[in-house]
Design a protein around this nucleic acid. Structure first.
Length: 160
DNA sequence: GCCAACGTTGGC
DNA sequence: GCCAACGTTGGC
C-alpha cells in the first residue's frame, strides 16, 4: 500500500518498435496499457505513487538498455483495454465493477544522451546487487522496482 | 529466427 | 493440487 510520501523508483520495459522513448517524448504522457502479468500489475497498483521516478528501458531490440527518464504521472486506475472486446488486451474475465488490470500514466521527463546499455548494467551487477530483477536470471518482469541506490548507480553510468 | 525461462491454463 | 501443454518474453 502506498502510504508514504518518499519518492520511489521503477524500471519499465517497452519494445521500441512498439513504443519508444521518442514516442513518449512526442505524446508527453502515455497510459501504460497492456500489462498482463500480476507481479507487474501489483507494482503499478500497490507500489507506485505520483511523481515516482521511472527508468525507461528498451527491450527486444538491437541494443537493450535504459534510454530515458520518465515519471509516474497519475494515480492508479483500471486499464481500459481490458474491457475493449476488439483490443488484443481484452480480458473476458474483467468487468468495470471488478477490474483485473490496473495501470498508471507514464510521463516523459528526458532522454539520456546515450543509453545505459544492458551490457554496461551487467558490468555493474556487483554494485547493483542480487535483488535487481532486471539482470536476475530468467526474470522477465516488464515493471520492476529500483532502489534509490540502484537508481543513483544507473544514472551515474549515463555516458556523457 | 532461435530458444530458454517463465507464467497461465485446464484436464484430471 | 498436480503438471503437461501452451503462449510470451526478451536476449542473442
Amino acid at each position: 500500500m502506498s502510504t508514504g510520501k518518499r519518492k520511489r523508483y521503477w524500471l519499465m520495459k517497452s519494445e521500441p518498435e512498439d513504443f519508444s522513448i521518442d514516442d513518449l517524448e512526442r505524446v508527453g504522457t502515455e497510459p501504460w496499457t497492456g500489462v498482463r502479468n500480476y507481479q507487474a500489475r501489483n507494482f503499478m497498483r500497490d507500489g507506485m505513487q505520483l511523481g515516482d521516478g521511472v527508468l525507461f528501458y528498451h527491450s527486444n531490440c538491437a541494443v537493450p538498455g535504459v534510454y530515458g527518464i520518465a515519471e509516474v504521472a497519475s494515480s492508479t486506475y483500471p486499464d481500459p483495454t481490458q474491457f475493449q472486446r476488439k483490443s488484443k488486451y481484452f480480458d473476458p474475465k474483467a468487468t468495470p465493477e471488478e477490474p483485473r488490470w490496473m495501470l498508471i500514466d507514464v510521463g516523459f521527463v528526458r532522454k539520456l544522451a546515450r543509453p545505459v546499455t544492458l551490457e554496461a548494467i551487467r558490468g555493474r551487477s556487483a554494485a547493483l546487487g542480487e535483488d535487481f530483477a532486471l539482470i536476475r536470471k530468467g526474470s522477465r518482469l516488464s515493471v520492476l522496482p529500483v532502489t534509490a541506490a540502484q537508481w543513483k548507480i544507473l544514472l551515474a553510468m549515463e555516458p556523457k
